[in-house]
Design a protein around this nucleic acid. Structure first.
Lengths: 229, 229
DNA sequence: CGTAGTTTTGAGTGCGTTCAAGAGATGTGG
DNA sequence: CCACATCTCTTGAACGCACTCAAAACTACG
């Protein structure tokens, strides 16, 4: 179980003024490093900053009163997390591995006078987020367990995959999240995720050197299982 | 089947300059009336305007190559629809009934200099949208058929419900969308929606004077069925 | 090496789907 | 205004996929 404590994150002291060619650095922002399991913010906290992931992986979750957990999204490098609803975070956010991020003051969401470039980036990220979530609706709504799992692996493959051989026909990546996280993201149970992995393994589409390390043997076959539209 | 034709919508000629106390009217925007079934925009169209619903109901849908349809959202008065992803609409949008709306140029999304108030409203709407979609994830991910249906009716009750009696303990509203629309919104089949309606009817939580007219006899019981968190 | 947590596999159940038919509503032309 | 066609909604019966419960294999960490 993850526990929050003041040592979980580090605010790296950084002068507000850096090289002028870096637009983001012209105005105040904080750079942080989260340790694995550290909580960045809780559901309901007042939103002071929106975060940009530099390295590592974040997990955004919501838990209902009845205890049912939904993983809303994973935050990979390049993603923005923490967009507020009525001034507050509406998910919990914690780090799955050591994660480096930049916190941008929410005032940049409202005002564009101080830093038009950052404001535009945040607006763009919010619109991208809406589009991505609509894609996820198709997933949760209609796809079967094997299609959901293959879709998830396809996205991982494209976002964090590396070529596993010189020929470039095999792609490998690590899974920073547990089977339970994947299940709660896709609206399935851990046993079902495990069975889907086995099914893809038996079809010689992937291999699992370890439980958290995936090698995609046939990327096209994986996309076919995913029923990518 | 709905057919698009030039007569489906009307651009109401309106001078750009109106009473100065109306912030929205200080800059160019168009007012439109859509007839039932008229298409506002298609998936992939270049986004020129973002729309604000004044009256009526819009339906946002996505259809996959395999023909599976997902209703992303319904647009009720006060809602904004048409936020672009990389400059294009990523859903189809059509009117379920006669719908009045205002089109705001997308330039107000990017620039806030011309009209800071409108820009802030659009940004706020986009952030609200993200939050609402996250709520919907809980729905699609974990709720049972009866919970989904009761949740949907609960939201309708709160958004468009009217008191059906003087005592104020019964609420009625009409359903502008078909059972198929509700099913595609909740990730279920029409038969399942119908069975859930029957189940709520047998439990004396609702009555259906007509198929598209709902009277909620016990609002609290409906919320209980919905497992609202 | 021992304990706790995660992942995998197995067997049986249940909920929503599928397939099918009937009831009700809507619209058109004679 | 009614007959007919079409579409939507409802109900029934059987199936199948993912869940539930249970236990074993594997991993991580002391």
């Amino acid at each position: 179980m993850y526990v929050t404590n003041p040592n979980d994150y580090t605010i790296v002291p950084e002068p507000a003024l850096v090289a002028p060619q870096n637009q983001r650095s012209k105005f105040l922002h904080s750079r942080r490093i989260l340790k694995p399991g550290a909580v960045l913010f809780h559901e309901g906290d007042v939103t002071l900053e929106v975060y940009e992931v530099i390295s590592g992986v974040l997990r955004l979750t919501r838990v209902s009163e009845s205890g049912r957990r939904q993983v809303i999204a994973f935050g990979f490098p390049g993603d923005f997390v923490g967009f507020p609803k009525t001034g507050r975070y509406h998910t919990e956010c914690d780090a799955l591995e050591t994660t480096e991020l930049i916190g941008h003051s929410v005032c940049h969401l409202e005002k564009c006078i101080d830093n038009p470039v950052l404001h535009a980036r945040l607006m763009h990220a919010a619109l991208e987020e809406i589009g991505s979530m609509q894609d996820h609706f198709m997933m949760l709504g209609w796809k079967s367990a094997i299609e959901k799992t293959a879709s998830f692996l396809s996205v991982m493959m494209e976002r964090v995959g590396r070529y596993a051989d010189k020929a470039g026909d095999q792609i490998e990546f690590s899974l920073p999240m547990s089977r339970a996280d994947i299940a709660d993201f896709l609206g399935l149970k851990t046993e079902t995720i495990s069975r889907a992995f086995t099914q893809l393994r038996n079809a010689h589409v992937i291999t699992l050197p370890t439980a958290k390390h995936v090698v995609v043997l046939k990327p096209e076959a994986l996309l076919a299982f995913a029923e990518i539209d």
